[in-house]
Computed example of a mutant assay.
Amino acid sequence: MKELFRTTDPTQLAFAVALLEGEGIAAFQMDVHMSVLEGSIGILPRRLMVREKDMFLARAILCDNGLEVG
């Protein structure tokens, strides 16, 4: 799996996951439970991972919908 998207905004992450799932691309969220360590202040980014074979299409989907992909 490769990192597609990183953000501290949980709404952007949920939007990205919904877009990808709508296109049949499996996405895995990492660092979701890090709020225990940071004290729920939202400073640690969460990562969205996709399979390497889906990376090109997943990037295009997020970019087309206004999300900045790193």
Rank of each mutant, 00 (worst) to 15 (best):
M1K: 04
M1G: 05
K2R: 07
K2C: 07
E3G: 06
E3I: 15
L4K: 04
L4N: 09
L4F: 11
L4I: 14
F5G: 05
F5D: 01
F5C: 03
F5P: 04
F5W: 05
R6N: 01
T7I: 06
T7L: 00
T7C: 02
T8W: 09
T8G: 00
T8C: 13
T8V: 15
T8P: 00
T8R: 02
T8A: 12
D9T: 11
D9S: 13
D9A: 11
D9G: 05
D9V: 13
P10S: 07
T11A: 04
T11F: 10
Q12A: 14
Q12V: 09
L13W: 10
A14G: 04
A14S: 08
F15Y: 12
F15H: 09
A16F: 02
A16Q: 09
A16D: 04
A16N: 05
V17P: 01
V17M: 09
A18D: 14
A18F: 11
L19H: 12
L20S: 07
E21N: 15
E21C: 03
G22P: 01
G22E: 12
G22W: 10
G22F: 11
E23W: 10
E23D: 14
G24A: 06
G24K: 01
G24Q: 06
G24T: 06
I25T: 05
I25S: 00
A26L: 14
A27C: 05
A27F: 10
F28N: 06
F28R: 03
F28Q: 10
F28S: 08
F28P: 00
Q29D: 03
Q29K: 07
Q29A: 14
M30N: 02
D31E: 13
H33C: 10
H33Q: 12
H33S: 12
H33R: 06
M34L: 15
M34I: 15
S35C: 02
V36D: 05
L37K: 04
E38S: 14
E38I: 12
E38T: 15
G39E: 11
G39M: 12
G39L: 13
G39N: 11
S40C: 10
S40E: 14
I41Y: 08
I41H: 06
I41E: 08
I43Y: 08
L44E: 03
L44P: 04
L44Y: 07
P45F: 12
P45H: 10
P45T: 15
L48A: 08
L48S: 00
L48P: 02
L48M: 05
M49Q: 03
M49V: 12
V50E: 01
R51S: 14
R51F: 13
E52R: 00
E52K: 05
E52D: 15
K53F: 11
D54P: 02
F56W: 09
F56C: 05
F56Q: 00
L57R: 03
L57H: 02
L57Q: 07
L57V: 12
L57K: 00
A60I: 09
L62S: 05
L62V: 11
C63V: 15
C63N: 09
D64E: 15
N65F: 13
N65C: 06
G66Q: 05
L67D: 10
L67N: 01
L67F: 09
E68S: 11
E68T: 15
V69P: 01
V69Q: 03
V69Y: 07
V69F: 05
